[in-house]
Design a protein around this nucleic acid. Structure first.
Length: 813
RNA sequence: GCGUCAGUGGUGGAACGGUAGACACGCUACCUUGAGGGGGUAGUGCCUUACGGGCGUGGAGGUUCAAAUCCUCUCUGACGCACCA
């Protein structure tokens, strides 16, 4: 009987389905584990990254089931999004048809890997039943003032024909297509994530040690909290007049109020209202106006590349403390979206302001002592700062803020780099935003009983314009408030909205999916996810949005969970020849072909064995063969098993080799707990099992073999479930999979212990010592064995590490 | 520039401050086989004249009886952020 993975795997996959072996209990009274791998986008086929992701998740799920937890291990489909539309453009297939066909295909691929998903909780985010509840959440957020519509400068991808959130812009380019992002003024819907910035930042502390450090710092930096002073410069009389009385003051934010006396000019973004006013009213030289317009047409990256550039706007403001008149410039490095789009410039103590001032020969005034050259950005004492002179700058910050507050000149404020989340996309294949534009009532939310607002299916997708906009009838509707003719919103929701709450949807029992979006009791029982597994590329995007949604939905009363993912494991990428696998590079490995050739168990074993999960995984065909060989060998050894139950073994009757084999088997068992609950180093658990099998092979006691196989099959079941279950079934009637194995400490008791003898910190020789030997006896033996190296030396210190080694520190006489 | 992580054989990777290189791949020799595949046995960090040594975890210091592991500095690489005032 030789190992035939295809037969074994099909057999057990069928059995598990028939037995509904992987469904969680409906009653919520056992201790639980919620194991979740990030759900896939139904692109058409699985790739090796998916295999790795789900192999890791499945190992956890199967392990905890064995530990008698009620385990929720669901799968679904992140099914809205651009590629479906692109496929429609390219192949003329309707996005819906394309998406569901892909799901059917990929579901079979997952099935072939033997993943222990709950089948009853599967859904696709494009299911209208999912959209329905999502639209309800969106409306509730609108009612709570967390969602608003405004027209502002947005990131626009001209290739994808849609707006992007700040988080979706990578180095100035679109996260999806990598084309440069343009800035464009457009209306859109925003979620007030800044309102939750402090909550999101604070709760990162709870995740310390449970999420990778890297992800925590990335989120912290992304939120970018900074504290400082917000105050207003009054415009000079002439400047007010020039601006037609439309502006009285210029508001700025600074984190360095201690440098306030060093301000020598102010700088506005090209998009600042004052700059705009000057442009719109022809108040600038033609030449300058053109240059400023050119800046507004540049992306942030282009501006950065161009270097610092600015123009005197011919305006002045009054310094609030010194009453000096200060020029107002516009500068290409001032961000419109942060701190009101205006800054006070302190060239002596800020590198950017210094560079700019030097270029345009603006005055530079030192107000903090220290260092020889300017700009000086470190700590020091204030100078040239009236009554604050002599104060340490760190203290001056606090005092100057209070001074501003006491004299109602400004106030201490907190600013965040985090921008509010723009959630509207000008695309077809997404969840419709459930609002209506009414001439009399303005922006009106759809009535809850009218949900879901679904997509029309009779659309033509060309890539030009928004199909919802162009549809002949879809957008015409009645105002939910007054009943008059109105226009339905044609933007759809960012797909990251769907993945922000799917963890709650899985937790909700499917029998309640029709009646509720999130069942509170279910959610409170299952959440947070005990182990979340996914790629590091979601460190900010998805993981921040999902945390935000969790908190918002909590505050809306849907559940009582603060954080969605208690433990996060970010898996490394799968590489081939040192590069990420990709179709364009032609360095992919097809999971289907792999499963066909070697079986799912080999595919899973290799991905878990070749590297620890957090690290990158270098593909190696030869090592796959190695994994296959191990399984074959394990399978071959079924003939060594002679009993159907765990034998009772008398340790005293065993050969040295048999004793060693037992040690290796029980070491693997010990390792198992540590790996699943602490280190996640599946590679070392597999190595321990390999060692155990190698050691078993070196002896021929059938009881030791039986015990070894009984335990090893149990340990390996989460990793290579088909072959482990097959053997467990035929050899032990699967009883070995159901027991809680206990480590037998007596196995580790040895007749003699090998001590390493180190002299002067170097390993010199070894001695065998009886376990009952005293420290002095051990030392005596060590000195005798090491006599050769002790000649001409005298011993300074004697160290005995129990069961390990002796170290004799020596000095020459 | 800032932040995070990582540097160990030919390769993937192991090592609660306690024998560096487990396990696996690859390679070498031999055995099995008509050959190939498959299986088995032994070996495999580097240097050295075999014994015996010496050197070795990117580099330089330090703490310690003992450092891949802890500390300081430094170099290299990956990833993230990037004019956030």
């Amino acid at each position: 009987m030789s190992y035939t993975p295809s037969q074994i795997e099909a057999k057990w996959q069928q059995k598990w389905d028939d037995e509904k072996a992987h469904e969680p209990d409906d009653t919520l009274d056992r201790k639980k584990k919620y194991i979740l791998s990030m759900f896939p986008f139904p692109s058409g086929r699985l790739h090796m990254g998916h295999v790795r992701n789900y192999a890791i998740g499945d190992a956890f799920a199967r392990y905890y089931r064995k530990q008698n937890f009620n385990v929720l291990h669901p799968i679904g489909w992140d099914a809205f999004g651009m590629p479906a539309e692109n496929a429609a453009i390219k192949h003329g297939r309707h996005p819906k048809e394309w998406t569901y066909a892909n799901i059917d295909y990929m579901r079979n691929e997952l099935q072939a890997l033997g993943l222990s998903f709950s089948k009853t909780r599967e859904f696709a985010t494009c299911d209208t039943l999912y959209t329905k509840w999502e639209q309800e959440f969106i409306i509730r957020m609108f009612e709570e003032g967390l969602l608003y519509r405004e027209s502002t400068t947005v990131n626009w991808c001209n290739h994808c024909h849609t707006v992007l959130a700040n988080e979706q812009v990578e180095e100035g380019c679109c996260w999806r297509c990598d084309n440069p992002v343009e800035l464009k003024e457009m209306p859109g819907y925003y979620l007030d994530i800044i309102k939750y910035a402090d909550d999101l930042l604070e709760d990162l502390k709870q995740l310390e040690g449970k999420w990778p450090n890297q992800v925590l710092t990335m989120q912290e930096n992304w939120i970018g909290k900074s504290q400082g002073l917000e105050f207003e410069f009054e415009l000079s009389k002439e400047s007010k007049a020039k601006l037609g009385g439309n502006f009285e003051t210029l508001s700025v934010f600074t984190t360095r109020p201690d440098t306030i006396y060093g301000v020598t000019y102010t700088a506005l973004a090209a998009e600042h209202p004052i700059t705009k006013y000057l442009l719109d009213n022809d108040l600038l030289d033609n030449d300058v106006a053109q240059k400023i317009v050119a800046i507004t047409n540049m992306t942030e990256i282009e501006r950065a590349k161009k270097g610092k550039e600015g123009y005197d706007l011919g305006l002045t403001v009054i310094h609030p403390l010194t009453q000096e008149e200060i020029p107002v410039w516009t500068a290409n490095f001032v961000l419109a979206s942060y701190g009101g789009g205006a800054v006070m410039a302190v060239p002596a103590h800020d590198e950017r302001d210094f560079e700019f001032a030097t270029k345009y020969q603006l005055p530079i005034k030192r107000v903090i002592s220290g260092g020889e050259t300017l700009p000086y950005t470190l700590e020091g004492k204030l100078e040239n700062s009236e009554s604050f002179t002599g104060m340490k700058n760190t203290e001056a910050k606090v005092h100057i803020i209070s001074y501003f507050e006491d004299n109602t000149l400004g106030k201490g404020t907190t600013n965040y780099k985090l921008r509010n989340w723009g959630i509207s996309r000008q695309r077809y294949w997404g969840a419709p935003i459930p609002f209506v534009h009414c001439e009399s009532c303005g922006l009106v939310a759809e009535k809850i009983e009218n949900l879901p607002i679904t997509l029309p299916e009779d659309v033509e997708i060309t890539g030009e314009g928004n199909p919802l906009e162009k549809h002949p009838t879809w957008k015409y509707c009645a105002c939910p408030k007054c009943g008059k003719d109105a226009i339905r919103e044609t933007d759809t929701l960012d797909t990251f909205v769907q993945s922000s709450w799917y963890q709650f949807r899985y937790a909700t029992h499917p029998s309640r999916w029709n009646t509720t979006g999130i069942d509170k009791e279910d959610a409170n029982y299952w959440l947070g996810v005990d182990q979340y597994i996914g790629g590091i590329e979601h460190a900010i995007l998805h993981l921040l949005y999902a945390r935000f949604f969790t908190k918002v939905l909590r505050d809306l009363g849907y559940h009582d969970v603060n954080e969605p993912f208690n433990h996060l494991l970010t898996q490394g990428m799968v590489l081939m020849d040192g590069a990420k696998m990709s179709k364009s590079k032609g360095n992919t490995v097809d999971p289907d072909a792999l499963v066909e050739k070697y079986g799912a168990d080999t595919a899973r074993l290799f991905t878990l064995f070749a590297a620890p999960p957090a690290k990158e995984l270098e593909w190696n065909d030869a090592a796959v063969e190695g994994a296959f060989r191990f399984i074959k060998k394990l399978y071959d050894r079924h003939t060594k098993v002679t009993a159907k139950t765990l034998p009772k073994i008398d340790q005293n009757t065993l050969s040295k080799e048999a004793k060693l084999a037992r040690v290796k088997v029980y070491e693997a068992l010990k390792k198992s707990k540590e790996v699943y609950e602490k280190t996640f180093a599946f590679n070392t658990l597999i190595a321990a099992c390999m060692e155990a099998l190698n050691a078993l092979d070196k002896q021929d006691n059938s009881e030791v073999w039986t015990e070894g196989m009984y335990i090893m099959l149990n340990l390996l079941e989460p990793i290579i479930p088909h072959v482990a279950t097959e053997l467990s079934d035929s050899l032990f009637a699967r009883e070995n999979l159901e027991v809680q194995l206990e480590v037998k400490e007596e196995v580790f008791v040895q007749d003699s212990i090998l001590y390493v003898v180190m002299i002067g910190g170097k390993k010199r020789t070894e001695i065998e010592v009886s376990p009952s030997a005293s420290k002095d006896e051990i030392l005596a033996l060590a000195k005798e064995a090491g006599a050769k190296w002790l000649e001409g030396m005298h011993i300074v210190k004697e160290i005995v590490v129990p069961n390990k080694l002796v170290n004799l520190a020596v000095k020459s006489v």
